[in-house]
Write a protein that binds this DNA or RNA. Structure first.
Lengths: 123, 123
DNA sequence: ATTATACTGAACCACATGGTTCAGTATTCA
DNA sequence: TGAATACTGAACCATGTGGTTCAGTATAAT
């Protein structure tokens, strides 16, 4: 079940593919986005997050693990508390990908517009 | 297994949560990003995509289905061919979310609240 | 020294995902 | 008409995901 994708492409749209996977995947869950927002306001312990989102410690730990794997959160265990904070990843690649996509879209739509013009003329 | 998350939050960082889920989820797969890139260059039929990515027609159809559900691709069956093209979604919300996140990261010590005000107004 | 707190790990569950094959149907081509 | 093309849908498979419980361990508080 594996890639070999893009074999014929030279697109600049894909910097570090697997990182994009991890980051977009991490952002695809509302609880995880919520955790990021909350950490944006203030660092938090696992238990504080569990409390805020009404999910078990274990459940929150898994989400935080996903965010860590994506580089969006770092944690440090101090005593019996695991402190979670944002960073180090800034979503640069993700921003770039989306920006490039949007540019492409604009181009496509313009071309579509042109096409419609031509079509209209022909009819 | 369902949300009730954010019960205590008023963040405006989440415009249409499920749409963000769908879009980020769609972007989390390299094959799907590849399909978007390819469609950015030129519309394509299911079979053309299947050919390009070396995945079965059925497999590609599923990916395209996910992209359609996320609003990133529209398709139209013409005769026996299903033509896929980009649109109509421009990833505005996703861009906004990420941009907000990055700003939060930068101004880690500034209050997120202030920024939330601005964001709320814009949306 | 006990007890309460904060977390961890393993095991489990239901459902989603990314892929396949196979047996169709609907078009188009010759 | 018959054959090739383009897709579709159902069924299946392995793995991943988002959650749980339960039984621990390590630390902090009394």
């Amino acid at each position: 079940m594996r890639p070999k994708h893009f074999a014929d492409q030279t697109s600049e749209l894909r910097p570090a593919r697997s990182k994009l996977d991890a980051a977009f995947g991490a952002l695809a869950d509302p609880t995880r986005r919520g955790i990021l927002e909350r950490l944006g306001r203030k660092d938090a312990a696992i238990s504080e997050l569990a409390d805020a989102f009404d999910i078990t410690l274990t459940g929150i730990r898994k989400h935080v693990g996903v965010l860590e794997a994506a580089g969006l959160v770092t944690t440090e265990k101090i005593g019996r508390v695991r402190r979670c904070r944002l960073g180090p990843r800034r979503l640069d690649d993700e921003t770039a990908w989306i920006a490039a996509y949007r540019r492409t879209l604009e181009g496509r739509l313009n071309r579509l517009g042109e096409f419609l013009e031509r079509t209209r003329e022909r009819q």
